[in-house]
Design a protein around this nucleic acid. Structure first.
Lengths: 223, 223
DNA sequence: GACATACCTGGAACGATGTTCCAAGAGGGG
DNA sequence: CCCCTCTTGGAACATCGTTCCAGGTATGTC
């Protein structure tokens, strides 16, 4: 179990939850999710795995803490906007950009959607939906839709990033997928063939914003 | 590697990809994702793990095949509707209900969003958006938004199901989460407190449909 | 009917991981 | 100085996914 109170103060080279999480984030960012093992972490901190367990309950807690650190930092940096719709876009984009920069956050968000950092998103989005004029009872469905859309994007971005480790190139990843898709019978899957080029060449950030605007339009319609 | 052609025909007790996948689905449905190991599968099929590997490349392929089996079956059963919007709702609900009945499908969908079964969803949704009058260039953003919303819901439902294994009760799971949320300062998180009851007591299927209708409303707005 | 060959099976063995356990170190108060 | 608590390092354990291979089984050929 973790210390009840700071016994005296920091030994200089001492282990701490903060240092452990920072190292974990470094490993995740530079070498990907599969590189984060307690052995790698221990080696980077010049200690043993047992020492880490004294500060962190288990790997889930470690990942949750790392996610909260990265995500809540970027949410806090969201600039306030005059327009509620613009504010919602800014919040969503902040999450999107964080996940594109740190795909492991997306994996974690998809596996454990009720992360502490999600409360922040929930709160601030609710406020903006309210400012948009959404009635009290309709706020929850709106935030919920937004949250599930964000989580879906998170999962997809994280999956794409995982594939890039083998294919290294984005167009190669999408190319392989589209190739499999278009091997199907064009008569039975006309739209798959029709839209193949867009799947291959779309700008993910732009399509993300398009989808977001659909949800916002739908939210306004429920006023 | 798998057989190139059926050499003659089936030995009665013979192993086959179909039997392996069926057993895997049984294990997943009855004992959850963590229960599916090659040892458990081999024991249920009265064989060794090596034999399974002759029919299935690895665990990812096994999970992908299981997911495709369950998901494409339920998509094929979707009744056709007169109204394109109703048809889209029917498709989405079929996915939603499948995942609620088999939460491991949700996990798999969130980890590997470009599953073969997703092509089916993609194709049929595109057709309905087209029937709705969405212009050719706007179809892809619409299907993409729908897909990400579905994936997000899949991830969330699967996560909830995982938690139920320890808490057993849905209200207990949500109760714990809401309790953590409401421990925060009401002054700083007013909406979290305001909406706590709705988080605890909402009907997930209904909220899912609400979000879906927002996306459809947004799609109609881009006509 | 016997033999060769390609297909298929079972289980031992390997390497890696998360986690637990515990003997020992460090630091401060009596 | 000793004792007690907090902290550390690393060995050890249980499980996994996966690989390997010795053997079994069916089939086509003479």
């Amino acid at each position: 179990m973790s210390p009840k109170s700071k016994p005296s103060e920091i030994r200089v080279g001492a282990l701490s939850k903060e240092r452990i999480i920072a190292s974990a984030i470094d490993i995740l960012n530079s070498n990907g999710e599969s590189a984060l093992t307690f052995r790698a972490l221990a080696s980077r901190l010049s200690t043993g795995s047992g020492a880490i367990y004294w500060h962190v309950a288990d790997k889930d807690a470690l990942l949750a803490a790392a996610t909260e650190t990265v995500l809540s930092r970027s949410i806090a940096e969201v600039a306030s906007a005059a327009d509620p719709a613009a504010a919602l876009r800014a919040i969503a984009l902040s999450v999107f950009d964080t996940i594109e920069a740190h795909p492991w956050v997306g994996t974690q968000l998809a596996r454990e959607p009720w992360q502490p950092a999600m409360v922040e998103i929930f709160e601030r989005s609710s406020a903006q939906f309210a400012a948009l004029g959404v009635s009290r009872d309709a706020i929850f469905p709106c935030v919920s839709a937004l949250a599930q859309y964000l989580i879906g994007t998170a999962a997809q971005t994280a999956a794409a990033a995982r594939h890039k480790f083998s294919a290294s190139d984005r167009s190669a990843v999408l190319g392989t997928i589209v190739e499999q898709w278009t091997q199907r019978d064009p008569a039975q899957y006309p739209f798959v063939h029709l839209l193949a080029d867009q799947v291959r060449n779309h700008d993910e950030r732009e399509v993300f914003l398009d989808g977001l605007d659909m949800i916002l339009a739908g939210a306004k319609a429920t006023l």
